[in-house]
C-alpha cells in the first residue's frame, strides 16, 4: 500500500488555495506598496510628515470629511504630530465651536479648546450627503483601518485618478480611479501640485502631499501605534526570557523520572 504523506498533501492543498486567491478575486488592482516608516515592527511615524499631513487634512480634506473621534489635544500627544501646547491651542482656537446652553438657555459660539473634538464640516450625515452630490464623504477617524489595503490603498486612491479608458461613460460628478472598487469615485481628485504651501518649506508635490496626508490618517486611525510597538517588544522579550527559565525548570523537574518530554 502506498503511504501518502498527508502533511505534504495538506501543505500542497493550502498553498494552492492561498496562491490562487489573488487570481480569482474581484477585479480590483492591488494598491501601490509604499515603504511607510510606521509599517515595520519597530515602526514610528515621521513627525514632520504627520505635521504636514495635518496641514493637508485641514486645508483640503476637512472641507468635506469629518474626523469626529479626534480631539485637538491629540495633536500634541506623544506618538502623534507632537505639536507644541501653544500650537495646539492656536489650532483649536482657530475654529468656532457651538456650545451651550448658557444660563439663559441660549446656544453660543466660542473659540475651540484643545479638549474639543475636531469640528465637523457638516452638522449631520444628511447635510454632507446633500452637499456632495448624494455621496457621503466618510468620517476619516478610522478610515485607514476600514479599508482592506490600509495606508497603501489610501495613498493609491489619491494617486489613482486617470482619464477613463475609451468607451467607459461616466456620469456628471463621477470620476475614474483605477484603485477604487468598480473604478468609480464621486470625489474629484483632491490633490494637485502646489495647492498647499508647506510651512516647513517642503515642496508640495502631489506625491508628497498624498504620502503626508496618508501618514496623518494612519496615525489618526491608530494613535497608539508607537506605544503599542514599544510595549509589544518589551512584552515579547520578557515572555521569551520567562519561557527559557520555565523550560529549564521543566527539564530539571522531569529529569527525576525516566520519561522523555
Amino acid at each position: 500500500m502506498i503511504r501518502f504523506n498527508f502533511k505534504r498533501l495538506i501543505i500542497v492543498i493550502l498553498s494552492t488555495l492561498i496562491f490562487t486567491k489573488p487570481l480569482l478575486s474581484a477585479e480590483t488592482i492591488d494598491p501601490i506598496k509604499v515603504n511607510w516608516s510606521f509599517k515595520e515592527l519597530t515602526g514610528k511615524f515621521d513627525r514632520a510628515s504627520l505635521q504636514r499631513g495635518f496641514q493637508v487634512y485641514k486645508e483640503v480634506c476637512a472641507s468635506c470629511h469629518s474626523m469626529q473621534y479626534l480631539s485637538y489635544r491629540n495633536l500634541g500627544e506623544p506618538g502623534g504630530p507632537e505639536f507644541t501646547q501653544e500650537e495646539v491651542k492656536a489650532i483649536a482656537a482657530s475654529v468656532e465651536i457651538e456650545d451651550g446652553p448658557d444660563s439663559q438657555g441660549d446656544m453660543f459660539t466660542r473659540p475651540g479648546k484643545p479638549s474639543d473634538k475636531f469640528k465637523s464640516p457638516y452638522p449631520n450625515v444628511e447635510a454632507s450627503t446633500a452637499a456632495n452630490g448624494g455621496a457621503y464623504p466618510p468620517d476619516m477617524s478610522v478610515l485607514v483601518k476600514a479599508r482592506p489595503g490600509g495606508a497603501d490603498y489610501m495613498y493609491s486612491v489619491l494617486m489613482g485618478y486617470e482619464e477613463p479608458p475609451a468607451g467607459m461613460k461616466l456620469d456628471d460628478g463621477v470620476y475614474y480611479n483605477k484603485y477604487m472598487i468598480g473604478q468609480k469615485i464621486k470625489m474629484a481628485s483632491p490633490l494637485a501640485d502646489g495647492i498647499v504651501e508647506y510651512s516647513d518649506g517642503t515642496e508640495a508635490t502631489m506625491d508628497q502631499m498624498a504620502k503626508d496626508v496618508t501618514t496623518f490618517l494612519a496615525w489618526a486611525a491608530e494613535p497608539e501605534l508607537e506605544e503599542r510597538h514599544r510595549i509589544g517588544f518589551k512584552v515579547i522579550i520578557y515572555l521569551i526570557l520567562l519561557t527559557i527559565l520555565v523550560y529549564l525548570s521543566m527539564k530539571k523537574i522531569w529529569s527525576r523520572i525516566d520519561s522523555e518530554i
Binding site: G232, F233, I236, L239, I240, L242, T243, V246
Partner: peptide, 13 residues
C-alpha cells in the same frame, strides 16, 4: 508561555 508569545505577536504587531 509559547502560546502567549504568539498571542502577543497578534495583539501588539
Amino acid at each position: 508561555l509559547l502560546f502567549m508569545i504568539i498571542f502577543s505577536g497578534f495583539v501588539f504587531f
